[in-house]
Write a protein that binds this DNA or RNA. Structure first.
Lengths: 239, 239
DNA sequence: CGCAGTGTTGAAGCATATCAACTTGGGTGG
DNA sequence: CCACCCAAGTTGATATGCTTCAACACTGCG
């Protein structure tokens, strides 16, 4: 059930059998959410953290004028709110962007891990730090890349992250967002997103049809995006 | 020497005397950097993490065309690269924006903390999570706030963060960045920054002269920024 | 004294937003 | 089973926020 999480952590360091078992035993009570449903509400104090087993979810904040900014995208194997364990209170909401299957880890059990399993603790810490590295890359993309490059960068990132958890199929992956949601990720208008996507498609860089993204020219896509996957820390290393 | 760090952590939870002593004992070999000097290089693997005792520092990435994006600002009491402890390799550089005084914590000592002091471990983890929360707020500001509101938001954030470590004086605080650096923080051009700053000054919201920012109308500043300090987690709570 | 980095200003151009209309397709109730 | 309905996608026109370029002013420092 938590295979994607094990792939995620396991691609950054070696997990002992004991650590795997511990993770399996604390991740319980799996639940389904429909697309559009809130998985965690802004301002809440969840007593557990949520692991995404399948589907796409997003962290977001809503502005006074009703506009929305998505600050993170999550896929299978991601904890969507592990940070709420030390942080306690959610300063943003988390919404399911597709049908989502999740499991929960009680904060008491996580605390017990920090008391007795220092290596696993560091790996969980690492997991939240990779989220932070992704945040920084998004800041760079929003501030200093063209919107075209920002889009290309996001596609690169998703492709690599989904490869880690074996959610790609050749050069394709499921991508169930609407253009409206995608615009909220990028911080641009839907109209402009639509036109820029068409340009990238016409250029033969990638396509996005039937909720599926297919990369046509990976070299060129990386070039446009100035993509360097280093920030994703995808290499086994003692931590 | 590490008073600012203790104020930082101490405003989020109670620190035991033992924890304080441990932090004091592992933070050693203080060093100075001049404005403009790199404190940590991109791609390096520092065997220690760096605590900023005094001054302003920034995390940044440089694009192929030479433009730069600053992804985080750090002030006294901030670890500038605590994340490098589990992450290992720096995916970005860290530069001193003013004269900086720093201290170092060896990664071996940090590791020992994760083995024996779970509560202190959670507080260090928390410290990196607050960085993440700030990242998210910057993403929101870049994506869905006007540049004017983004600037206002940054001023609000800095004021509150500096209050925590007692680095404000009434409604003022030292702010030694150039407009060029500030533009790299916001992801905009210097020209536009300059004009927007003047508008805010003319409106009587805040001033920025002689490396000092003075807030003239705090209410209005928060209103323009839609500022809510919740994301900074400034409340004592068992973690 | 003179230079270099910073701040300021104006003009012109472009990227992106906004507004509005129209198309398409899947889902549903009559 | 068809009609229609609504959400999503697409397109064109217009408006504007922000960038770029270029020139000039200011100030601290060697």
């Amino acid at each position: 059930m938590i295979e994607a999480l094990l792939l995620n952590l396991g691609s950054r360091d070696v997990l002992s059998a004991e650590e795997e078992n511990r993770l399996r035993s604390i991740l319980v009570k799996d639940r389904h959410f429909a697309a559009g449903e809130d998985i965690v509400a802004e301002g809440s104090r969840p007593p557990y953290s949520t692991l995404l087993l399948d589907g796409f979810a997003a962290r977001y904040k809503v502005m006074a004028d009703g506009s929305r900014q998505i600050t993170a995208l999550h896929v299978a194997g991601d904890f969507v709110d592990l940070h709420a364990f030390p942080l306690r209170k959610m300063d943003h909401g988390i919404v399911a962007l597709s049908a989502c299957h999740v499991a929960f880890a009680d904060h008491g059990d996580l605390r017990a891990i920090t008391e007795r399993m220092p290596h696993l603790t560091r790996l969980l810490w690492l997991d939240t730090l990779i989220d932070g590295a992704i945040h920084r890359e998004w800041i760079v993309a929003m501030g200093r890349r063209s919107k075209r490059a920002q889009i290309a960068h996001l596609v690169c990132e998703l492709f690599v992250r989904l490869q880690v958890v074996k959610r790609t199929r050749g050069e394709s992956f499921q991508f169930p967002l609407t253009q409206i949601e995608m615009a909220d990720v990028l911080g641009i208008s839907v109209v402009h997103l639509n036109k820029t996507l068409q340009a990238l498609r016409r250029e033969g860089v990638f396509t996005w049809e039937n909720r599926t993204i297919t990369i046509v020219d990976w070299e060129r896509l990386q070039e446009i995006a100035e993509f360097d996957p280093a920030y994703l820390s995808i290499h086994k290393e003692p931590r």
